[in-house]
């Protein structure tokens, strides 16, 4: 017995060490990409704590501590930008749960299967079009000579350039985002709905339960955990108002209601070349988002046993 063990062991060891070597090789390429393109840029946050000068570089520029952060919070822009970000992001978070959920529930009531499938197939489409493309179409439709104004003129309402109106910009941004994503966001609810046993509905019908009551007592409790997970995971996006969308739709006319953290960072950093200040604002966002995401994952794990891996 003992000799047998002795005999096999060197072979097994050699084998695992060879496997280990090849595993390292496999990880190698991906890890290089991760290090150089995900991790190295993170060290750039040092810029936020110094007076960055491209000639002196990251390690040679003068260290100034929290000066940029202090300046940032004393600026008149910052309040406006943070309010815009929060209003747009939080509205999107809430509506991007409620609207897809309502849509999923209504679509679930459609009996003709082919029609249901057709609707489902088409409503995903906007999700796959970029904001560049959709912005060009939306700016046309809501432009001065656009379809929306043509429609309004039927009712005698005067036309406007809707995306240049301070008072409408936020609403249009929120509305168009919800429109773009509702089909895609509904997928998860539709899948959860198929998991509810039809027996429950039959039993409820026999007991004389109406449509609304069935939704309230059977459907919603059946997909409650999905809704909870989606809501919690949304928390990480509280400062994410959607750069791609707003960057393509806004103009200086609507800065007062439409300028968000990310667009401000872009203009300050890449157009005005205020690298340190822009990095400080970006870091403020990243740090808070990081905290919120970690909290949301912990809560989702505790509340609904959701795990990312």
């Amino acid at each position: 017995m003992k000799t047998a063990v002795m005999k096999t062991r060197p072979f097994a060891k050699k084998r695992t060490s060879r496997t280990f070597f090849h595993y390292n090789l496999m990880v190698g390429i991906g890890l290089l990409w991760l290090i150089f393109f995900n991790i190295v840029p993170m060290f750039g946050i040092i810029i936020a704590f110094e007076d960055y000068n491209p000639i002196q570089g990251l390690w040679g520029s003068e260290f100034v501590g929290l000066e940029h952060f202090e300046y940032l919070f004393s600026m008149s822009d910052s309040r406006r930008v943070i309010v815009n970000t929060l209003v747009i992001a939080v509205s999107k978070l809430i509506l991007n749960i409620i609207v897809p959920l309502a849509f999923a529930l209504l679509l679930n009531e459609v009996r003709q299967l082919r029609f249901k499938k057709f609707v489902q197939t088409i409503v995903y489409l906007p999700h796959f079009l970029s904001w560049v493309i959709l912005a060009s179409v939306l700016l046309e439709i809501f432009g001065y000579r656009g379809v929306f104004n043509a429609l309004l003129s039927v009712f005698g309402v005067e036309g406007k350039i809707w995306f240049s109106e301070e008072s409408c910009f936020r609403q249009l941004v929120i509305f168009s985002d919800v429109w773009k994503e509702f089909g895609f966001n509904a997928v998860i609810y539709l899948a959860a709905l198929t998991g509810i046993s039809p027996d429950l509905y039959e039993a409820a019908a026999i007991d004389g339960c109406g449509r609304l009551k069935a939704v309230w007592h059977i459907t919603l409790p059946g997909i409650a955990s999905t809704i909870v997970v989606m809501a919690i995971l949304g928390l990480g996006n509280v400062l994410n108002a959607g750069f791609d969308q707003i960057f393509n739709l806004y103009s200086p006319l609507v800065y007062s209601t439409g300028d968000i953290l990310d667009t401000w960072v872009y203009r300050m950093g890449l157009l005005n070349v205020q690298f340190s200040l822009a990095t400080a604002a970006g870091l403020f966002k990243s740090a808070i988002s990081f905290l919120l995401i970690v909290i949301s994952y912990v809560v989702a794990y505790k509340a609904a046993d959701y795990r990312i891996f």
Partner: peptide, 18 residues
């Protein structure tokens, strides 16, 4: 390490400079 990279990033400017 991978999960950390998913949760945190340095922001646009450090990325651009890199």
């Amino acid at each position: 390490l991978v999960v950390f990279c998913m949760l945190f990033n340095g922001g646009t400017i450090p990325w651009y400079i890199t």
